[in-house]
């Protein structure tokens, strides 16, 4: 452990060393992947301070659960799942505090998206990469928590419907409905952002 070149070491080596209690190795993993974990937390929470706190909490949990990491996925994928679960817990707590029922949200998304006119022109066409990033970020911020979450899990975490349903503790039908609404809303928002220039 003492001879390890931490900056050059692979994630798997650092994970192995961390499992044996090497905090320097773990700190190296944190330094490497903290932006990605934070970005995912921010994408879900839309609040910088909360995202920082949750990402740090995720690292603490990651350290405590290192023995459970079997290497079936990459270390960052594993860590991302931890931070997503923490964000979901936080969103549930927030929802309970607001006494906002999921059913009410379902009604909100139960038909509106079907009335929206189809966006025929690709609103992101010929857009610079940086510009596209800002636009999508803005549009994501305008979605409800439930719709944004399902979109993040499907499009960024590449999770199947059934896994999203399990993670979000809802039915596959709800996942499909939310995803459909979220996509249609995103198309509409991106179109609006383009035409409002």
């Amino acid at each position: 452990m003492a001879d390890m070149d931490y900056t050059a070491a692979q994630d798997a080596e650092l994970v192995q060393a961390s499992r044996q209690g090497d905090m320097v190795a773990f700190e190296q993993l944190v330094a490497r992947h903290r932006d990605k974990i934070y970005a995912r937390a921010y994408m879900m929470m839309r609040n910088e301070e909360e995202a920082i706190d949750l990402s740090q909490e995720a690292w603490v949990k990651g350290w405590q659960r290192l023995v459970q990491f079997q290497g079936e996925s990459s270390f960052t994928t594993w860590m991302t799942r931890i931070v997503i679960n923490l964000c979901l817990d936080q969103l549930r707590k927030r929802k309970r505090q607001r006494a906002e029922s999921i059913e009410a949200m379902e009604e909100e998304s139960g038909g509106v998206e079907r009335q929206m006119p189809v966006v025929m022109v690709n609103p992101t066409e010929q857009m610079e990469r940086a510009e596209l990033r800002v636009r999508i970020d803005e549009a994501l911020g305008k979605l409800s928590e439930a719709h944004r979450t399902v979109l993040v899990l499907h499009e960024f975490e590449h999770m199947e419907y059934k896994n999203i349903a399990k993670t979000m503790k809802c039915s596959i039908g709800t996942v499909m409905s939310r995803l459909f609404y979220a996509r249609r809303k995103m198309a509409s928002l991106l179109q609006d952002l383009k035409t409002s220039e």
Partner: peptide, 15 residues
């Protein structure tokens, strides 16, 4: 189109 736009999206958020 929407899915393609999202798939190409990489957050530049940094701590």
């Amino acid at each position: 189109n929407t899915r393609a736009a999202l798939l190409s999206h990489e957050s530049e958020m940094k701590v």
